[in-house]
Simulated scan of single mutants.
Amino acid sequence: MKKSFSEHLFSLAALSAALYATSALAVEFKPSDHLIVIITPSHSNAFYKAESDTAQAAAKKLGYRTNALVHQDDPDIQLRLVQTAIGDNASAIILDNAGSDSSIAAVKRAKEAGIPTFLIDREVNANGIATAQIVSNNSQCATSVAEFFAEQVGFKGEYVELTGRTSDVNAHVRSEGFHRVLDQIPDMKMVAQQSANWDQTQGYNVMQSIIQANPNIVGVLAGNDTMALGAAAALKNAGNDKVIVVGIDGNPDVVRQIAGAGPIAATGLQQATKMAAMAMEQADQYLRTGKTDKPEKQSVDCVLVSKNNSHQVREGGFGMQ
């Protein structure tokens, strides 16, 4: 029977599809043809260095080329680095961003250039521009730290809170988590709350001023371990190392203090290495298949580290054995 014109068209379309599929299968995916750009805050903070090192190691193990860059928590530098990544034909960007609002433009720029961005540690206040936002469960983290802190000080006394960078949504979420617990305890009173911008030197300087005005404090909650280290040093120099200090991150120097004589008693260990590894695993899947099969927003619980389990923290911190 003679085929109609439409049947001929259908046969040709089917043949073209089969040839295209065969051709696509014949093209082998080569990770070495792809560049993964990893952008974080300064590596002088061990947390960010652990993120970058883990992502680089995972990428190189899979065969990708990498470029690790630092934005110094400056949105303008971050935007320039993203533009550089675009110019270098990066296949994916792994980013611990420089601010939840101020980073939106940079992530959008990458998306417009067809480059998927995998955010770790810090989210942005926008949906649909990043391929993934893999962040610590900061609320759970802060709540668990605050509960431990309250127990250690006997559920009473004056305390101090050092908060992180005001432009960082994580700083606000952690502070809210602290107060969700402590504001319910009538015999506990916050006598000072001040930002030290996630910085150890600022944590030291701020704490020095606070000690002079508040000699009777029983404890300090720091929004991250870097500030906790600064606060602990200031307390020690003032001869006041019996004050309980807690932080959040999983910094190896803090873990050593927890395992030893203190005064830092606990940290909410953010699993930086796990988040970075997850980002690289999902970037690899996306580049190979065009999807990750994961939701954009992903939350990773923290682990409360005290003297009892400090030996289980991996060497270098920021992960459990």
Score class of each variant (00 low, 15 high):
S4K: 12
S6A: 15
A21S: 10
A21D: 09
T22V: 14
A26S: 14
A26Q: 11
V27L: 10
E28P: 03
I38Y: 05
P41E: 07
S42K: 09
H43D: 08
S44K: 13
K49P: 01
D53W: 00
L62G: 11
A68N: 11
L69R: 12
H71V: 10
D74E: 03
L79W: 07
L81E: 06
I86N: 05
D88V: 11
D96N: 15
D96V: 13
A106F: 09
V107W: 00
K108M: 05
E112M: 12
A113R: 00
T117A: 14
N125H: 13
T131I: 03
A132R: 11
A132P: 00
I134Y: 00
S136D: 03
S139I: 10
Q140L: 14
T143F: 08
F149C: 07
F149P: 03
E151W: 00
G154F: 05
F155M: 09
G157P: 02
E158W: 09
Y159D: 03
V160I: 15
G164C: 12
V173Q: 07
G177I: 03
H179W: 09
R180S: 13
M188I: 15
N197P: 01
N197M: 09
Y204Q: 11
Y204W: 13
M207Y: 05
I211F: 06
Q212E: 12
Q212I: 08
A213D: 07
N214T: 09
V218W: 01
V220G: 01
V220C: 07
V220R: 02
G223V: 06
D225C: 02
T226V: 15
M227Q: 07
L235P: 01
G239D: 04
V245Y: 07
V245A: 02
R256Y: 03
Q257L: 13
A259Q: 01
T267E: 04
L269H: 01
Q270G: 05
Q271A: 08
A272C: 11
A277P: 01
L287V: 03
G290T: 09
G290Q: 03
P295K: 06
E296C: 08
Q298T: 10
S299Y: 12
D301Y: 08
L304V: 06
N309H: 03
S310T: 02
M320Y: 01
Q321N: 09
